[in-house]
Simulated assay, not measured.
Amino acid sequence: MSNRGDAVEFSGKVALVTGAANGIGAGVARRLAAGGASVVVADVDDARGEAVAAEVGGAYAHCDVRDPAQSAAAVELAVSRFGGLDFAVLNAGIGTGFGLGDDFDPERYRNVMGINLDGVVYGVHAALPALRERGGRIVATASMAGLMAMPIDPLYGANKAAVVGLVRGLGPVLAAEGVTVNAVCPSFADTDIISGFRDALESAGMPVLGVEDVVDAFVAVLRDGRPGECWFVQAGRPSAPFRFPNPPGPRTATGERVTFHHDVSATPDVPTTGKES
């Protein structure tokens, strides 16, 4: 991983960071700016977002990630103010705080899905044209909850598992266009999302990651991430890409595994075969 405060690693780069008014997003914005990047801080918390933007010498965009037009406007600000876009860090996210029993609230559910999943989808869509021009990178904030069962908040786990699936599927598609997409999957980190159950975590002896530890992983992914990788972040061990088990897949009559070209929608005869590694 990069040394903290590296002053040259991101020189000349332009980054958009959503959910950057506090927590992980603010930490990423600060680290990128310390490394020489120009940063657009995007959030709905105008007071804190503007303060972070002023601190890092960047620009602030009011951006409700549930609205695709606002994601597009944040990208346009990066392009118009700084001349292009190299990194889109799609970090905006919230916890749920409810389940599928008597406490279920469809309106709150749509709001959570709108931020945690739609915000990534809309952010990718908005950023792609600018990123294609410069061979850029997308990093979405997922969670360990997207890699393993999350009994204390199954709906949050569903949000983040969807982000993981999206990143894995987009990996080869966008790599063919010169854009690398990754996810960072932290365990419980010291942010506002865990405020409602921080005491329970501490009582159970669950380590809570420092924000800077998660930011270290973002820096490593922005530097070294390969298409479609989802990097776990856990206390006490170095971050690395999660090695997904190879699931059973469709086979031809002769036993060869069926695979697909990167752009299934463009070519009718996309299935190919190959021996499973």
Rank of each mutant, 00 (worst) to 15 (best):
Q70R: 13
A72I: 10
A74M: 04
V28Y: 03
Y109P: 00
G119E: 03
T141F: 09
S11F: 03
V112P: 12
D102R: 10
G84I: 05
V121A: 05
V120Y: 00
V40A: 09
V124Y: 13
L128Q: 07
G58S: 11
I115R: 01
G19Y: 11
G83A: 07
V52L: 06
G57S: 04
S80P: 01
V41T: 08
S80H: 13
M144R: 07
A20P: 03
D105Q: 05
R137S: 14
A92M: 10
G146L: 08
L128Y: 03
G135T: 13
E9H: 05
Q70C: 00
G114L: 10
A73L: 11
P106D: 06
R48I: 02
A21L: 01
E133I: 02
L90V: 08
I94R: 15
N116A: 05
G58K: 10
A69W: 00
D103M: 15
R134M: 02
G123V: 11
R110I: 09
E50P: 00
T18Y: 10
Q70G: 00
G101Y: 11
D67I: 14
H125V: 11
A54I: 02
D45E: 15
A130G: 07
F104Y: 15
G119P: 02
A127N: 00
T96G: 02
S38Q: 14
L131V: 02
M113C: 12
P129D: 03
N111A: 14
A59C: 04
M144W: 00
A73G: 07
R110M: 05
L147V: 07
N116W: 13
V139T: 12
P106K: 09
T18P: 01
G136P: 11
R30N: 07
S71H: 12
V8C: 03
E76W: 00
A126G: 03
V52S: 02
L128H: 09
Q70M: 15
V65L: 08
V44R: 02
D64Q: 00
D102Q: 12
R31S: 15
V120N: 01
G35Y: 13
C63N: 13
P106T: 04
N3G: 14
E133H: 14
A130H: 11
P129C: 11
F10V: 01
V139Y: 08
V40E: 12
G101T: 12
